[in-house]
Design a protein around this nucleic acid. Structure first.
Length: 994
RNA sequence: GGGCGGGUGGCGGAAUUGGUAUACGCGCAUGCCUUAGGAGCAUGUUCCGAAAGGAUUGAGAGUUCGAGUCUCUCCCCGCCCACCA
């Protein structure tokens, strides 16, 4: 018998399909379409014979279906076995849809900008364009060898100027919408290579290329305001048919949390009045370095200790001014500068006595400013409140700084109910206020700590085992809820990038704060009482050794992060956490000391790369007009050829070295301007490629709106889960922005991908993740050459559930190959004959398998589809096999096989004498009535144990089945006397309970 | 620490969604065929047992006539995120 020669067959049909152009998607827009309408198609509204009905694969209900793969980055390693997994799945869906009469758009392209090509170019001394071209050619050859049904006429390449013209155009739209802005943000910096690095290039805190320890460095960057879309990106997930895990990842990445922003005054202070004889009533506090306590002396009223700004000297005068009227009411002159720069100031009354009828005058004195005058120049202004505490008058300075230097430190907390337990404040070391509040004494320690932190990698900073570190700034803050003074620390466990970069530390109810407080001996105040938990089953708990006691002690531990009842919280005592949160927020808002706040982990998208191989950002910097967009009619801004792709050493992209390219004219006038030399990140091109496939040659627009209406949104999107948060989030963001800008028609909607499926990772044969270093990488090329594309495709589908990770087994592909060979043999055996059996069980068989495979494709259970096809073919070879295989049945089989193994199916189809192409045949329709069997095998159980089976006409009544069951000797054996109960599930099972 | 997924033969995995567990394939065993090659064909293959029979879906309990599937407790594995306030 002829051996199946996959090489010849596969090459032949790939060529035939291409010649016939059978995979071209048809644009139906009036303007451009020559092909008006497709045949109506016979899309069957099938569902699994034994399950509920399914929804249509197309969310739009239109006849046009968009089946999209995540386009690959054409690396120099060539195709990985993981690529064809997703491509095969989407190809099966696309072919299935086509056979169902759908007009299918199934395109492929190249995400070709990026660092690996650039690095390879530097290494080889070739232009990145050449490297990219070679890689693309190799990828294309490999992908084509698998016989996927792509419409290659729509191929896109992100590095093609005709493509990136529109990437730049989109950037300009974002810029005009205020979604792009410039800022200095820290990035990884390699001091040896003198270049900024992408996060992916930092390995274990070292530069991937030279191994030097990287540093944080602030660089001017372009950022995209994705945070503006945080809520929409979050809410939009609800309506998407995406894997829950991916949705969860995006939710987590966006990281919305609700709580309160509480404003702590740093540098605001309590100020104690000194007694009549100059004796001190209470401690003064030093809050900020510039504000050293002073002594106000010589007054006929009181001596006050006050502050000395560095530039206040003996002889300077101090004036008290009414905040609202600006009228001065008291004067003082600095008479004495004490050690540590204490100064005595005599206070001259101008008609107000602060110590008389305090309560009555309280209102009047509130809001007075104190103004220290130095050579008639106001230096500091303080406001203060008169209070009466334990019968003694005191001034409390509300704010220790001028309006300009007022240090209000907002912190974000999800647990405002624990506010009374905030015993210290922690700022991130990078917090801009740190330098301003650090005391002289602590300056050195703070500087050193900041430097240490700056040199740490994120890994070191966040490693679990790491002990908490931090230093005291010397400054204090006031807890707004109880006016307690609390110290201000800096520590690297507080991240500048999240929230406000500052936290209120509640060591009694937060594990990190607890750990920190323990180490630095900071006060711990419990303000939440854990709920008293009653065990569900008291008896069990008493029996279980230490159970209740252990649980109890856990609840009594020093750090309780759960909910509970508020204690030590003034008037909020007794409230449950949840209610307390609301009440505290109400109080804060009422007092103007805080507000309800929502916080996101999501940060704006750093959109600049100091690299060569990317889209130039289409902006110029003009001395007169600032940042000016390049006019749209001047796009694309071509990526110029440079001699060196190496970074210039200035931290700018190699483009900065191209003087003649950088220097240009300002579009708004004839003045000189410089081009932006940063390039876009690799994600830019992939953000919108699915739009360009629709209309890849359009030079007037990124795509024709009518065409977009026809195809969008994407019906099925298949790709790896590794893009869960980056590409898939960025892409949604751009789509929403373009939608808002009116670039996308309204009908298209603001979500690009309706249904998403992730292929699971293919692991190496050892069950480990494939990697070069492990040496367990499988190269598809030799396998395709040896077993054929059909075997390869089918094995990848057969390996296991599409979305699960599964190990590769080259033995496994052999089994699939044998199966295809058997099909080949049957087709050539002469057994395939036309028969005319109406009541043939085979007729039923073909309908069952059609239903089952259709269900499998709809639900991405391709592994069971393959198994069904194998079972089907086995049924022709069973010992009871018919001499002939019904030709109609075999043809139905080939149609169902064809999405999985298209080449061999096509070949056998033609060998059966068809002049048509199988890919253009109609998908078989199954008849539900024919699926129902005439006879069923019913399980007979006694007490739930299988004791026999009986074969009965389907739909038999209970007593008939019972009669048959009792006739079974093995069943009768177990039935003594009358059964207590008899359960009958129609056509399935009979269970005697005895 | 958080989120998600999972645990079924020697291996990849199936199981009509609460109804005959181990389909399909790999591997293995025996035999056949052959100019031995990682080819083809046939039969067998969850485990224990010669058999009758019994046991079995990570462990334990519960609901049920009936549990791989539902509920609870616990154990283990994988992936992703992670000092996120």
């Amino acid at each position: 018998m002829e051996k199946y020669n996959h090489r010849a067959v596969e090459a032949k049909w790939q060529q035939r399909w291409e010649e016939a152009g059978v995979f071209a998607a048809k644009d139906l827009t009036p303007a451009r379409s020559a092909v008006r309408s497709m045949a109506g198609g016979s899309a069957s509204s099938s569902s699994h014979p034994l399950s509920a009905s399914r929804s249509s694969p197309s969310g739009r209900g239109s006849n046009s279906v968009y089946v999209l793969d995540m386009f690959p980055y054409p690396s120099s390693d060539g195709l990985h076995v993981g690529h064809p997994e997703g491509y095969t799945a989407s190809d099966i869906v696309a072919r299935y849809m086509r056979m169902n009469g759908k007009n299918v758009l199934h395109p492929m392209g190249w995400d070709a900008f990026g660092l690996p090509a650039e690095n390879a170019a530097i290494k080889k001394g070739v232009h990145p364009r050449i490297v990219t071209e070679q890689n693309v050619n190799n990828f294309k050859r490999q992908i084509k060898s698998l016989g996927f049904s792509y419409d290659w006429s729509r191929e896109v390449n992100t590095t093609d100027p005709r493509y990136y013209k529109w990437t730049q155009w989109i950037f300009l739209q974002l810029f005009k919408m205020g979604l792009a802005y410039e800022a200095e943000v820290p990035i990884w910096w390699c001091p040896k290579d003198k270049t900024g690095l992408a996060n992916e290039e930092v390995v274990n805190g070292c530069c991937e290329r030279c191994g030097t320890k990287v540093e944080r460095k602030k660089l001017r960057q372009w950022l995209l305001r994705i945070t503006k879309y945080a809520d929409r990106l979050l809410a939009g997930l609800e309506k998407l048919d995406w894997p829950e895990s991916i949705k969860a990842l995006q939710r987590n990445w966006i990281g919305k949390s609700e709580g309160a922003e509480v404003v702590f005054e740093v540098g605001s202070m309590e100020y104690e009045v000194w007694g009549k004889g100059g004796e001190r009533v209470a401690d003064t506090m030093q809050f900020v370095p510039e504000l050293v306590p002073l002594v106000l002396n010589g007054s006929k009223f009181k001596t006050y200790r006050f502050f000395e700004p560095k530039n206040v000297r003996k002889g300077d005068s101090v004036e008290f001014i009414n905040a609202s009227t600006k009228e001065s009411f008291a004067m003082a002159r600095i008479t004495k500068v004490e050690k540590r720069n204490f100064i005595d100031i005599p206070l001259h009354d101008k008609g107000h006595e602060p110590d008389v009828s305090i309560e009555a005058r309280r209102k009047r004195y509130e809001g007075y400013y104190k103004k220290i005058v130095n050579n008639d120049t106001p230096v500091w202004i303080y406001s203060f409140i008169l209070e009466k505490t334990k019968g003694k008058a005191r001034f409390r300075i509300k704010s220790g700084m001028t309006d300009k230097k007022k240090h209000s430190v907002p912190v974000f907390t999800t647990r405002p109910d624990t506010l009374f337990g905030a015993t210290y404040l922690v700022l991130s070391p990078e917090h801009p206020l740190v330098d301003m509040i650090t005391s002289e004494k602590q300056k050195k320690a703070v500087e050193k700590y900041k430097k240490d932190v700056a040199s740490k990698t994120d890994l070191e900073r966040t490693s679990l085992e790491k002990e908490k570190t931090g230093v005291f700034t010397g400054a204090y803050a006031v807890n707004p809820v109880n006016n307690e003074k609390i110290p201000v620390w800096i520590a690297d466990y507080v991240l500048m990038s999240y929230g406000t970069g500052a936290i209120m530390a509640v060591p009694a109810h937060d594990e990190r704060d607890y750990e920190f407080a323990k180490k630095f001996k900071l006060p711990i105040l419990k303000v939440i009482k854990p709920p008293s938990v009653m065990p569900k089953n008291p008896v069990e708990t008493i029996i279980s050794p230490g159970g209740w006691g252990h649980l109890g002690s856990e609840l009594e531990s020093d750090c309780w992060t759960g909910e509970g009842t508020m204690v030590n919280s003034g008037k909020f005592d007794g409230l449950l956490s949840e209610k307390g949160r609301k009440k505290i927020i109400e109080w804060l808002e009422h007092e103007g000391k805080g507000r309800f706040a929502v916080n996101y982990k999501l940060r704006d998208w750093v959109f600049s790369r100091q690299r060569y191989w990317g889209e130039p950002i289409p902006l110029v910097h003009c001395p007169n007009h600032g940042v000016v967009p390049v006019p749209e009619d001047q796009l694309p801004v071509l990526l110029p050829d440079v001699e060196k792709y190496e970074p210039t050493g200035t931290g700018k992209s190699p483009l900065a070295g191209m003087k003649e390219w950088v220097q240009t004219q300002c579009p708004l006038g004839d003045g000189p301007a410089e081009r932006e030399t940063n390039t876009m990140p690799q994600w830019a091109g992939s953000c919108w490629y699915y739009l360009r496939y629709l209309d890849p040659k359009n030079e007037q627009a990124l795509a024709d709106p009518e065409t977009m209406k026809q195809w969008l949104p994407v019906d099925v999107y298949v790709g790896g889960a590794e893009h869960a948060v980056l590409h898939l989030l960025y892409s949604r963001f751009w789509h929403m922005a373009l939608y808002d800008a009116g670039v996308l028609p309204k009908d298209v909607g603001d979500e690009p991908f309706i249904k998403l499926k992730n292929q699971g990772l293919i692991l190496g044969p050892d069950g480990e993740k494939m990697s070069k270093s492990r040496g367990n990488v499988i190269n598809p090329d030799p396998l395709i050459a040896k077993f054929g594309a059909d075997s390869f495709r089918m094995y990848e589908m057969f390996m296991g559930p599409f979305e699960d990770a599964k190990p590769w087994s080259t033995n496994g592909i052999v089994g699939v190959r044998r199966f295809l060979q058997r099909i080949w043999n049957i087709a050539h055996s002469g057994r395939v004959q036309k028969t005319t059996l109406i009541e043939d069980p085979n007729l039923r068989r073909r309908h069952i398998y059609t239903a089952s495979i259709e269900y499998g494709i709809d639900s991405f259970k391709f592994n069971t589809c393959v198994s069904e096809l194998m079972k089907w073919s086995n049924s022709w070879d069973e010992p009871t096999k018919d001499a002939y295989v019904d030709k109609d049945e075999f043809e139905v089989f080939l149609k169902l096989l064809s999405p999985f193994a298209p080449h061999i199916s096509e070949e056998l189809w033609s060998k059966l004498g068809h002049g048509t192409l199988l890919v253009q045949e109609e998908w078989p329709i199954f008849n539900r009535d024919l699926i129902r069997p005439s006879e069923v095998r019913i399980a007979i159980q006694v007490n739930g144990k299988l004791r026999g089976t009986v074969t009965m006409p389907s739909g038999s009544a209970k007593h008939d089945v019972e009669a048959a069951a009792k006739a079974e000797p093995n069943v009768a054996k177990y039935l003594n006397g009358k059964p207590k109960k008899v359960v009958y599930i129609k056509d399935r099972l009979l269970n005697y309970v005895v």
